[in-house]
Each structure stands twice: as structure tokens, then as C-alpha cells.
Design a protein around this nucleic acid. Sequence first.
DNA 1: AATATATACTGAAACGTTTCAGTATATTTA
DNA 2: TAAATATACTGAAACGTTTCAGTATATATT
Lengths: 346, 346
Amino acid sequence: MNKRVTIKDIAKMANASVAAVSMSLNNRPGIGDEKRRKIIEIAKKTGYQPSLVAKALVNKRSYLIGLIIKDISDHFFAELAKGVEDTAKKYGYSTILCTTDGNSKTQEDYFDILCSRGVDGIIISTVVAEDSQIAFLIDEKIPFVCINRIPLIPSLKKKAEYIIMDNYSAGYKGIEHLWKLGHDKIAIITGSLNASNARDSLKGSKAALKKSGIKIPKRYIKEGTYSYREACLICERLLKSKNPPTAVFAHDDNMALGAREAILRSGLAIPKDIALMGIDNIKTGALAGIELTTISQKKYEMGAMGVKILVNRIEERVPHMVEKIVLDAELIIRNTCGYQMHGYRR
Amino acid sequence: MNKRVTIKDIAKMANASVAAVSMSLNNRPGIGDEKRRKIIEIAKKTGYQPSLVAKALVNKRSYLIGLIIKDISDHFFAELAKGVEDTAKKYGYSTILCTTDGNSKTQEDYFDILCSRGVDGIIISTVVAEDSQIAFLIDEKIPFVCINRIPLIPSLKKKAEYIIMDNYSAGYKGIEHLWKLGHDKIAIITGSLNASNARDSLKGSKAALKKSGIKIPKRYIKEGTYSYREACLICERLLKSKNPPTAVFAHDDNMALGAREAILRSGLAIPKDIALMGIDNIKTGALAGIELTTISQKKYEMGAMGVKILVNRIEERVPHMVEKIVLDAELIIRNTCGYQMHGYRR
DNA sequence: AATATATACTGAAACGTTTCAGTATATTTA
DNA sequence: TAAATATACTGAAACGTTTCAGTATATATT
């Protein structure tokens, strides 16, 4: 670090006290116009930039927020991160990027680091979000908001703020769509079932299955880990089995794309021979030649709203009440399920 | 922020001086085994976490690095960011994410903020990287490394560390590949020509054109801004013109994808009717049904190497010399140029 | 035994801010 | 005109660390 000009230097130059400089620069009252003007001028001329670290130390406000996600190269998280960073910037906060790669230990380390760094708040959107870690945050009284997942333990859930999609309804709508298109041999690749969102989606799908009177064998439901490769493998095995499904509903677009690879490799055509559906609505899915039918997740908006809530919480501008936001699940019909070919059959 | 346990509290409990606690915890010599043990034990028991902001203030080392990029939802930058964050984490640094959206003012603001925050170093990989801002960093003596772009002014270029792909060769190889496949009506969509990488690629392409004796009209070369939409529009116009190209070489995969949309919408088949080629090798390009022929950019590796260089610089473990790394451009042949159909024709 | 040296430990200053309790001066009020 | 009040300004403490100069005690050297 360079020798930067400090408040003391300015005080000397303006022959004023450091207090006067501080007050002038933060336009607090109690300093005469003449002196204030002079101080501000000197500050400008010398290119003075206040040390945010010193400020953080005394004010106990760092204007830093931590963003904990699984993987920034995953389109879902990248869009989310964009919403977070854009909004944080708007409110005068900087964003510390923390990726865990789904590793619980890494995540725990990051919680410690973020606390040590005195972040003002945290946005959490990971698959593995141990409830114990959430409890830690509540304990340390660090504001946080969960995006796209909620604590499993009810007592924690009550205290946590979150924004989620209506995952139940997402899972439900997907099956409903496939059913209306005439499918009844539907395979499901779920997310990691240790997280609330994946569980809810599965519940929704099961409910829809029941509602439409579809019975599927147990082996049609497979737990994935949001990995492209793994979903590809799962789908491959499914297709090779004696009684293969005629539709696969992956509870995440990345996995749907993985399944897509397996389907295409096996020589089947989408949607002619088999229907494919995802959840998330990532950019790639919209590309010509892919045109994945999916359920929209408002990724950017979730990130943006998350920060808004967080900042309200931090600055306590709003009388505090715990926000719990559930966004609507919206079906995005494209080409992978056959709606364009023949419309709904029932 | 919560009332956290500080070094003072521990000193009191262990009845030692704060100095003793500090020295014990940082295993500096000068403290007896017995006392040290006791202090460490108390620290552990109380869950003491040092305040990184206080440390930063006295040590003038924040263990923070700034990452300045255009847009985290762009796959290129996301991969880069992943390399950066992973590596930073490994070295004990945290990453502040700064996206500029190509806005020079935003970028300048971020430079100021990062300085105020006392970051130890900066990784820069933006399109608009004004040389004046680079000069500012050199002036402030903040270590930085440029990724995928270099300062235009030679005197700055000399002082800056950077990692770039051999953009010239990338531009060259693309044209060469297309020429070998028999194309001579090749359109080029370049990046923003105010940045070094785009200029170099264009130079390379022009050189290859000359070498192979291809003459293309001026209107075949269009400056893009790395935007999908814009590239789509540019390509659309190109296709509608009287003498449309038989190949388009976008100097960035996103733009290639944009061009792809225009091509497909116009009813042309890739690669049967027209060849398409990009630069970057983003994940999406590898998907079945897209299979974009491209030139590989080692995005993750560039990020990782960038941090490595930066940390060496910060910690001055290595006798200082300015690193300038140029990575090889590697042609990735997939399906959009017709190599699989008929191989090289000349 | 006297001196030199090593070891264990402490108090206080420093990092760059903000804020609080005071002080001095100017202005208003009665 | 005296008292009350408002305004301008300052010194010092505080935030949570590290480090430096000392001090006290123990050990080694002659």
C-alpha cells in the first residue's frame, strides 16, 4: 500500500483539528462555512480518499456483503450474482464472492472469514447449507437472507429471511405439462435432497403424479447433484433399461442439458421420441437447437431482491419484520416436450 | 455486528498483556510455553476470531483482491472469475467482485473503492480499460495484473503485468481454418476495437486473409461489442445483403451464438450453407446441436495464473520481475465449419 | 561472584477514522 | 448588562490489532 493522504494530513494543511476535517467531510454540522469550504477544497486537491478499513473499525460498518454460492460458472448462480452485485453497488456496498463447490467445510470456513471481515450481511444460496451454520449467523446477529433454499429446521426457518421460488408448484407444473401432452412414463432427476428446494420440487411432482393418476416405478426417480455429467449418466442408464421413460423432467436446467446429451447420443430425437424438461430457465436453454421447455427461475431478480431486503435489515430503515418471499413458478414452453408438434392431448 | 470476543478479553482471562496474546496467537517467539498454551486454549474455548479489519489497519494488508470484469453472467468472465476465486481462496485471499458492464465511469469508481478498501491487488479483465486508470494503479503502487487485455500505450504496457491469449494467432488461425475449408467470402465480427485483444485478433485475421490471397469487401468486417443481440443484428444484415458471406468468424463465442441465431432464423443450415466460427470456447458451444468450432481461451487458467502472479507480487516472495504471459491459441474443431463433412479442401 | 546474555513479559504507540465532552467565542434574551 | 444559549472548534478516547522499547528474571560465561 502506498502512503496515502489521511485526515491528519488535511488537518495540518488546513490548520484545523482532525475532528473538524472529519465533520466537514461527512457534512456534519458544527463547522463554519469558511473552514469547511477550505477543508473540502484541500481534500479534493490532494485526492483524499477515506480509508474504508479505518471507518469500518470505528463505525462497525464495512459496507461489505458476502455472497455464498456453489459455483460461479454455473449459469444459475452467475445470474443471481449479477443481481446481487448490481444491487449492492447501487446501495454502496461491495460484494465478496464466496464459492463453496458444494463443500460444507469450505462453506463453514467462509462464514468465519466473512465474520472476521466484519461484513454487514450475507446472501446465501448454496445447496449444502447446513442448518447449524444458519444458527451460527443468527447467533452472531449477522443479517442474512437465503435465496432459493430455506432452513430445514422449523425454528430456524421462522427466524430466517428468504426468497424462494414456489418449488412445489414448479415440480407440480412440470409434471402437469407432461401429462397434458400425453406422457405417463416420466422420469425425474431431482436436486440434492438435503436442500429444501429440491425436496419441495419433488413433493410437487409427486403430488401432480398422484393427481393425474400416473404410477411410475421407483427407479424413475433419481437424486442428482445438479451436475451435468452425472445427470447424463443417470439418463443414459434410464434409457438403456428395459422399460425406458418417454419423458424426463430434470429439476434443474443443467441436469436437463446433461440428460439431453445422453438422449441425443442414444439416437433418440427430442421431442419426437422423448420429451425433456428442466427448471431454471438458463440462457443456454433458449438457444436455437436447444429450446428447452422449463420452469422460470427469476435469478437476477432474486439476487436483487435479496440485497434489497438485506440492506433494509442492515440499515434498519424499515421496522424489522422477517421477510419470506415466494415467487411464482412460470412454465416456459419451448420445443423439448412436443407442445408445438401436437398441443395438449388431454 | 455483535459484541465479539477480542484480544483484550482474552488477555484479561489469561491475565496476560494484549501483546502476549497477539504474539501467542501469531506464534511469534518470546512467550513461554505454559502461558502460550493457556492463551491458545482460551482463544479456542471462547471462539475467538481475529478482526481482519483491525489487522488490515495496522498491517496494511487486507488479504483482499479486487476482480474487475465486464459481466459475471457472461460465460467467459464467469469461468475466469472461478479461476480467480478458487486460487485466491487457496492463498488466503478473498475476492471482491466488481462488474462494470463496460461502463468506464463505473470502472473508475471501482478503482477508487478498491483503493479505499485497501485491497492488496487487482485483477483487471475488462473491455474498456482506460489506460489512464492503469496509470493510476501504477501511481498508487497497487499491484495488478491484466487478463486478456494490455494497455495500449507502450510505456504503460512495459510496466504492466498481463496474461493474454495470443490473440493475433487466434485471429489468424480462424481465417486459416476457414480458408482451408474452401471459404473466401468470410465476414468478421470483431470485438470492441478500443481494447488490445480485439485489435490483435483483427490484425491476425487480416494477415491470414492477405496470406491466403483472399480479398473481402470492407463491409464484411464489422465491429461488435461482445453482445449477443448486436451480433445477431449484424449478421442478419450481412445475410440480407446482395453478396452475403459464406462464413462468419465472430471474434467471441457469444457473438458467434448471436450470429448463429440470425443464420438459423434466415433458414440457412450450419455448416451446409454457411460456416460459423468463434473464439473463447465457452461451455455452451460444446453442447450437442451447437458444436461451435472455436479457438480455445484458457479462461479458468488465466484467472488462476493471474492470482498466482498477483500474490507473488504482493508478497514479494519472488524477486520482482514484470510477468508477461502469452498463451497459445488452440483451434477447437467441432461442427459449424464443415470439417466433418468434407475435411480441408486446400 | 560479578557480568553478560537470553528469555518472558508488559506498556504504550501506532494504524485512520468518529465521536464525545469540553472550551472559547459570539449571539440572543430578559 | 448579565445571563442564557447557540455556534465553532479541539483534544482525547475508542475501535482491535501489531510492534517496539523497555523491564524483570533466569541462565550462561568468565
